[in-house]
Design a protein around this nucleic acid. Structure first.
Length: 615
RNA sequence: GGGGCGGUAGCUCAAUUGGUUAGAGUACCGGACUGUCGAUCCGGUGGUUGCGGGUUCGAGUCCCGUCCGCCUCGCCA
């Protein structure tokens, strides 16, 4: 075999005159069969034009070259020369070509179902189902190669940064014990212990805390996590986290370490200098943006106008406000009226759009979305305009309204209003065209650290308290004593306790989350009590961790980044499958391998399991 | 589990209100062609319209069921 002396991406004018050998795939064929054939030869590193000239080649070589087709694998030997027919500015190698003296066909291809060409004739990629079926062909596309390389670089920067900061990379088990709260788990039957099962980890949470007890001081891992829940565009059942934990630290130490990581990562991946990241409390995020991961690249903030609404003549405002004043904060059934001012919305938001908003907020349980426009004269128009007359001036002042604005109102309980407007805000932002393009080209990177989450929230159906992060999340340092002292039936106080948890939000997307962990047994037992776990039940579920925490656990805290989402941001894609080499579909299938697939009765017998086949 | 969109040649798509033999580009095969770079020109092969059923004189088109893919709600401590 003619083994390569160079890759297909590296030859330049400086190499003119050299004899070289290239290996690669035929990316394009342009033939003048009787005497001249051009082949664009491709590998992971680039494309180089090679020329077969009938004037200087044996006829059979020219004939073989004339029958080369896309995706054939070949080796050529030849001389580098300046392009005779003019440069191709589209290629980095576009100033040179290889005048072939020898050709070896390493492997002819079957006719491929589609070509791995980002700029395919017709301009469109084959549909994703087909691309997943033939993943190895799709991965040959330069943009997919770039995605793999980008992901690789994220691994390298990550390992370097944490190594420099004294972290040990430690692997934790994939075959793990089921801990049934949280996400649904994938299960693996045990052969040795009949009737017992492993679970695949949702995250290495408990192990990394144990590693702190074990004196590892600082741990990191780029680890696979498994959650058997329905996927989304940015979510797969099998995904990758950058997982860490630190000893002898408090909240701000971890947050600072994370901020340093983000700054390093963005600098190395994009050249962007991340400015100091703003902090925002959960409460403020919910009040101003209606969501715990606000996209702060645009305004469109939410304003509570309950007081003014009470003085208006809008019947459904008053109905909503009458819904109760029972509890003052999160998850509240208190009736409120909230509004979003949309600058310039009067012109841009069509009736069809605003009708759509009405439907949209109903999906979150709201009765509807009222729309009022501010005309050139500064007067309210459409919908409920005349019923707002009594508070017209106050409302204009409260929302800083200008001619040409549209105002969107939702009236319902605090919880429903907040959720509905928080989601609606994002739709309106897209409709108004105020969302900058994400990705490394053009759009700003807008980071936010969200702090002071409530420790607990009420489950809507059961009415029971659930941990907002997880049961080992500590209260904020200044809240611990109040928490220990609090009456478990005092809902207002319990709800007001904030945790030492933190999320990092990028352009409205949660890219990392973590917390200081509980190392005080009094606090831990109070948490279990609130969650409705008896000491026996808690021990049953988390025995090894609780036991470990008794033997000199250092104060510790950690965080995990969603690696897939980081890579998505660097590539500017909203499709998580673009950043995973072998992703799964919405039903968790791998279209290339056919997983999941059947197993034999013998295999099942070995693991003491029996399949229930639908039928 | 719910909602939405989609499935027609290897691929990307078209096909009028239900109407004759389901078309185009591309790929592939054959031919022509010595400076192309989405090469060009000529010719050809290629179809269980995802699958099953129904309505109809007649179904790619309408109806029911089902499978697959994508988006989304629930879910994801």
């Amino acid at each position: 075999m003619l083994r390569r002396s160079h890759t297909c991406g590296e030859l330049r004018e400086a190499s003119i005159g050299q004899t070289v050998r290239l290996n690669g795939w035929v990316n394009a064929y342009r033939g003048h069969g009787t005497g001249l054939v051009f082949i664009d030869l491709r590998d992971r590193f680039g494309v180089t034009q090679v020329v077969f000239d009938g004037a200087s080649l044996p006829p059979d070589t020219l004939n073989t070259a004339d029958h080369l087709r896309n995706e054939d694998v070949i080796a050529v030997e030849g001389r580098v020369r300046a392009r005779v027919g003019g440069e191709n500015p589209k290629l980095p190698t576009g100033k040179i070509e290889i005048e072939v003296t020898a050709l070896e066909v390493l492997n002819k291809t079957a006719n491929p179902p589609f070509l791995p060409d980002d700029t395919a004739s017709g301009g469109k990629l084959a549909n994703e189902e087909l691309r997943l079926r033939y993943r190895y062909l799709d991965l040959r596309r330069p943009s997919m190669q770039k995605a793999l390389a980008t992901r690789h670089k994220v691994y390298q920067v990550t390992r370097r940064y944490f190594d420099e900061n004294g972290f040990l990379e430690i692997e934790t088990p994939i075959l793990y014990k089921s801990t049934p709260e949280g996400a649904r788990e994938f299960l693996v039957p045990s052969r040795h212990v009949a009737g017992s099962w492993y679970a695949l980890p949702q995250s290495p949470q408990l192990f990394k805390q144990i590693l702190m007890v074990a004196g590892c001081d600082r741990y990191m891992q780029i680890c696979r996590c498994f959650r058997d829940e329905d996927p989304r565009a940015d979510r797969q059942a099998e995904f990758t986290q950058i997982d860490l934990e630190m000893s002898f630290v408090r909240r701000d130490d971890v947050v600072a370490m994370m901020e340093g990581f983000v700054r390093r990562l963005w600098k190395e991946m994009t050249g962007f200098d991340v400015p100091p990241i703003q902090r925002m409390s959960y409460r403020e995020a919910m009040e101003r943006f209606g969501i715990d991961r606000p996209d702060t690249r645009y305004a469109l903030e939410i304003t509570d106008i309950s007081d003014l609404a009470a003085k208006s003549d809008v019947a459904f405002f008053k109905e909503a406000l009458a819904k109760g004043t029972d509890r003052p904060k999160f998850n509240s059934l208190r009736g409120v009226v909230k509004a979003i001012r949309v600058p310039g919305g009067a012109e841009k938001l069509t009736r069809k759009m605003t009708d759509g908003y009405n439907e949209f907020v109903r999906g979150f349980g709201a009765g509807g979305c009222a729309v009022v426009k501010v005309n050139a004269a500064g007067e309210f128009e459409t919908g409920i305009a005349k019923f707002l007359a009594p508070v017209k001036d106050e409302l204009k002042a409260a929302l800083s309204l200008q001619p040409g604005d549209t105002v969107l109102f939702v009236a319902d309980t605090y919880a429903v209003c907040t959720k509905a407007l928080g989601e609606l805000r994002q739709v309106v932002a897209r409709d108004m065209g105020v969302v900058p393009k994400p990705g490394s080209e053009g759009g700003p990177w807008n980071f936010l650290i969200v702090l002071d989450f409530p420790m607990f929230e009420k489950n809507k159906e059961t009415g029971k308290w659930v941990a907002m992060h997880h049961p080992f999340t500590a209260p904020r340092d200044d809240q611990a004593e109040a928490f220990v002292a609090a009456d478990v039936n005092d809902e207002v106080t319990i709800e007001s306790i904030v945790s030492a948890g933190y999320d990092i939000v990028l352009n409205g997307q949660e890219i990392a989350g973590g917390s200081v962990r509980i190392h005080d047994p009094r606090v831990q037992s109070k948490v279990f009590t609130l969650l409705g776990l008896t000491p026996e039940q808690a021990k049953e579920k988390f025995s090894f961790l609780l036991e470990a925490l008794q033997f000199g656990a250092p104060p510790h805290a950690g965080i995990a980044f969603g690696l897939d989402r980081l890579v998505m941001n660097f590539l500017g894609t909203s499709n998580i499958r673009d950043v995973i080499a072998f992703p799964k579909t919405q039903t968790g299938q791998d279209l290339m391998t056919g997983a999941p697939g059947p197993v034999t009765d013998e295999q099942l017998k070995d693991v003491h399991a029996k399949a229930i086949r639908p039928g």
